[in-house]
Structure formats: C-alpha cells, structure tokens
C-alpha cells in the first residue's frame, strides 16, 4: 500500500500538479490572517497538541500541517523552498544538507546547546532511538533477543518460523531508514550480517514505521528492525501485542530536527514556532515525543549534527551502499 502511495506520489510530482500528502491538517479550521505552512515527516497525532499550543498563543495564525516521507520532503522542499515556512524531519542527513546548501534561515538569539543545533539554523528537538519491535505472541515462551547478535541467533535457529515474517525500512525510499542503516553500518559489521540473515528469510520492506507497527500488531510480521521506538511506545493501544526492544549492544539514536525556510515570507512567525517547539519540550502534556536528551548524559551515542552526515548522501557512496544493501537484503 505504501509502495503504491509512493508511485502515485512520484507520478504527481513529475507531472507538476498539486501535491498529494500523507496527511494534511489545518489548525484551526477557521480562516486566519496569517498561515504558517509546516512540512513534516512526523505523524499529525504527535504534533497536534504542539500546534494547538502555538495557536493558543498566536490566535490570528492558522497552521497548515503537511505530512510526507523524509525523502519526499527533501524533494518537495528543494523544488519550492518559498512555499513552506517550516521543515521538520527525522532524516538528519537530509536536513543538514538543506542547511548546508543555504536553504535554512539563520535564527539569532536562540540560546540552544551547540550539539543540538547547527549553524543556528537547524534545531534538534527530540531524541529517538531506533528499536527492534517484536510481536509478543510469536515470542511466547522464548527469551526475547536483547542484541542484534541475539536476533541473528534466533533467526538462524528457527529460519522456518521467521520466513516472510520480518520487516525493516526500505532504505531506498525512506530517508530516516537510510540514515539508520548507514549509521548502523558505520558502527558495526553486525549490521551487514543481520541484513544478510534477514534477506535470506525474505524480509518485507516498508516506507514508514507506522506501517511496520500495524503489521506487527496484526501478526503479519513478528520482528521489525530499526523501527522508530517512539512511535511504537506511543501506540499504548497495541502494548499487549508488541514489545519494544532497545538493543543492548548499541543504539542508533536520531534527533528530529526543524528548520525555517530561508525564503519564508514570515520569518518572525516561523521563528516564533521554532521557539515554541523548543519550549514545548519541557511540557509533557503538549509534547508526546521523547524530548531532547544530552547524549553525553544519557550515556548513549546520538548521531551528531555535523556536515559529515552528508557523507552517505554522496551519489557515489549512496550507489555503493545501496548496491551492497540490495545484495544483502533482496537476494
């Protein structure tokens, strides 16, 4: 279904007609004097309360919240940077490249820790680890894998039980999936071994964490690798069906980032939104996402906001990496 979506998507983008969004919401319904357009990869459910808090403070403002995939955000935003005021994405590499290419507005006077911001134009506001999520029923009576190595052993021990029951991001279409994959590969060789094992068992590929979680809960798959832990934990309604495992060997932790378009027509309003987003972190009721955590304090390495993130966006490197990945996963 997700795939279909993307096909339609790219067709529409190519034909240059109106964009079709995964979700499009307007807060509030009534027409307002000023409209702030937010382009985001984050599901609306996580952002509704944040936007409502912003509207409460700025009554004459209407927020248009558009949701699409991280890779699509990059394409759409680069094509018309003046059409959007705010860009929010979990693909840190794509975001940093936008800022590096001069598409993000520098915001002065925002007192933010250096590790959580880049060039005063890209601001991180969540800390979200990639998780292994399993179907509880499928692992009933067995010990739950704690590490990637454990997972490899479990898969190897009962290949028939997991045949076609595995899922992960299709890194060719998902920006954040590609980010997790490249960072995993950078950290440990185990990633490639896991991918080979998963590939040999016929892994399903997804565009988005939400779909993986749905399929896990429904029992269509039993193990999903590199799911956004925050999304899985937020599905309290599915807590009985799924279990979220943060791998003990190493975690790949991503920070969701926001930037203001350099070509925004309303820099003050957009800056106010970023300010609100940063302030909202301390308000649990308004902020359903895991707030920013100092990586040094949390004891877990977080992907650092630095231009080196652009390494795997390099056309040659991306080609090499995807070739290798396809070789491993799609056999």
């Amino acid at each position: 279904m997700c795939y279909l979506f993307l096909v339609i998507f790219s067709l529409w983008a190519a034909s240059g007609t109106a964009q079709d969004w995964e979700d499009e919401q307007v807060f509030p319904e009534e027409q307002a004097a000023r409209v702030l357009t937010v382009l985001s990869s984050t599901d609306t459910s996580f952002f509704a309360s944040i936007i409502e808090g912003f509207i409460a403070r700025n009554p004459s403002v209407q927020v248009r919240y558009l949701v699409t995939s991280t890779a699509e955000i990059d394409t759409v935003f680069r094509a018309s940077p003046a059409a959007f005021d705010i860009v929010i994405s979990s693909a840190m590499d794509l975001q940093i490249k936008l800022a590096n290419d001069g598409l993000a507005l520098e915001i002065e006077g925002l007192n933010y820790p250096n590790w959580a911001a880049w060039r005063r134009s890209l601001f991180a506001f969540t800390t979200e680890p990639a998780a292994i999520v399993i179907n509880r029923a499928a692992f009933a009576g067995q010990s739950v894998p704690e590490t990637r190595q454990d997972l490899i052993q479990v898969l190897r021990a009962q290949p028939e039980a997991f045949e076609d029951k595995l899922g992960t991001y299709d890194v060719r279409v998902s920006g954040v999936g590609y980010l997790f994959a490249t960072q995993d590969a950078r950290t440990s060789e185990t990633y490639w071994r896991l991918m080979e094992v998963m590939g040999s068992l016929g892994t399903r590929l997804y565009c988005c964490s939400g779909d993986m979680i749905e399929d896990l809960a429904a029992g269509r798959i039993t193990v999903a690798y590199n799911v956004l832990g925050s999304y899985a934990i937020a599905r309290t309604d599915l807590a009985d069906q799924i279990e979220v495992i943060l791998p003990a060997d190493f975690q790949t932790t991503m920070m969701r980032t926001a930037l203001v378009s350099a070509q925004t027509g309303q820099p003050e309003l957009a800056t106010a939104f970023i300010r609100h987003l940063i302030d909202a972190q301390s308000n649990e009721d308004m902020f359903p996402l895991p707030p920013l955590q100092d990586a040094a304090k949390a004891g877990q390495p977080t992907i650092t906001l630095e231009p080196a993130l652009m390494t795997y966006l390099d056309a040659l490197k991306k080609r090499t990496f995807l070739d290798e990945w396809v070789n491993a996963v799609i056999q």
Partner: peptide, 25 residues
C-alpha cells in the same frame, strides 16, 4: 570509478562555528 571515502573526510571539517562544507568529485 568508485570513491568510497570515509566518514572522517567530512568529520574532520567540523568547526565550532558549524562551517558549511562543499565538495565535488
């Protein structure tokens, strides 16, 4: 031609002022 350059190629360019990096091969 393959240019599988290391992460450090750009990492070493990190500065306090978050300087922008451009490259061409």
């Amino acid at each position: 031609v393959e240019v599988d350059f290391p992460y450090a190629s750009f990492s070493m360019l990190n500065t306090d002022s978050d300087d922008r990096v451009f490259y061409a091969i």
